[in-house]
Design a protein around this nucleic acid. Sequence first.
DNA 1: TTATAAAGGATAATCTTTATCCTTTGTTAT
DNA 2: ATAACAAAGGATAAAGATTATCCTTTATAA
Lengths: 133, 133
Amino acid sequence: MIDFTDELRLHNLKATPQRLAMSDAMYVNGHINIDALYLIMLKKFHSISLATIYKNINLMLENSFIQEVKIPQDKSVYELSKDIHSHLVCQKCKEVFDINLELETVLSEAQQQSGFKICKTSLVFSGICKKCQ
Amino acid sequence: MIDFTDELRLHNLKATPQRLAMSDAMYVNGHINIDALYLIMLKKFHSISLATIYKNINLMLENSFIQEVKIPQDKSVYELSKDIHSHLVCQKCKEVFDINLELETVLSEAQQQSGFKICKTSLVFSGICKKCQ
DNA sequence: TTATAAAGGATAATCTTTATCCTTTGTTAT
DNA sequence: ATAACAAAGGATAAAGATTATCCTTTATAA
């Protein structure tokens, strides 16, 4: 179990046992939604409040310690912040995977066509993963 | 005001006045969220129920008459189904724009890297639109 | 024109998320 | 190590969003 104390403090978040456990759950699972996270947390903290989960998720988002990924026709999942990447979601097992893709070309084409100043790209593919095929 | 009667029936949806007005609102606005849609509908139907909006949105989604677009850090918007395309959202004025981009290369690269069978691509750029810069 | 399944409206019920309040705790400076 | 204090946690209420229910009305097909 990795210690996220320093990482939390770097993002101006106090390193409480609950936050350390949440960080670990996201690290271990990669991507996780609120319900699943709450269930995991309940195992370690018998009386943790769902409000604590929400409060921490929101603070961690505000401080960019984590990111939200909106999944088509499903609940959002959360992941520890890392280098920019895209996502794949399996419609069968619901698992979410990271993928690194070269999007410079598409992005500059989008900026040119639209006149937008783009600062964020959110790309999610839906399909069937290797295992589920 | 375009008549969506036939279009609705093609998707196995009865053409009620409420649904025709919802279709028109989406056609006129391009992309719209539940709250804005409800406000527009209230002008035409003084006593329309919010439940009617939700019921129809869900049926229209199930029958692929419309599509949901999940917007990062904001509420989902809905649009009439049309040819596959991507989206741009302005972080200032919140407007959502359609854009046609060539994604074959990126998609096949994603399939190759991951082993996924991809059947849907959801791409949303966030930034500042031409007008708001 | 009529019969019927489906849709609309009103409202209750059910999530989901946030706010409140008080107790406990992490952190910083002695 | 200790004390002080802002911040976090837990319990719970409140608010917000979505769905279910029930009865009346209506679109559609025969």
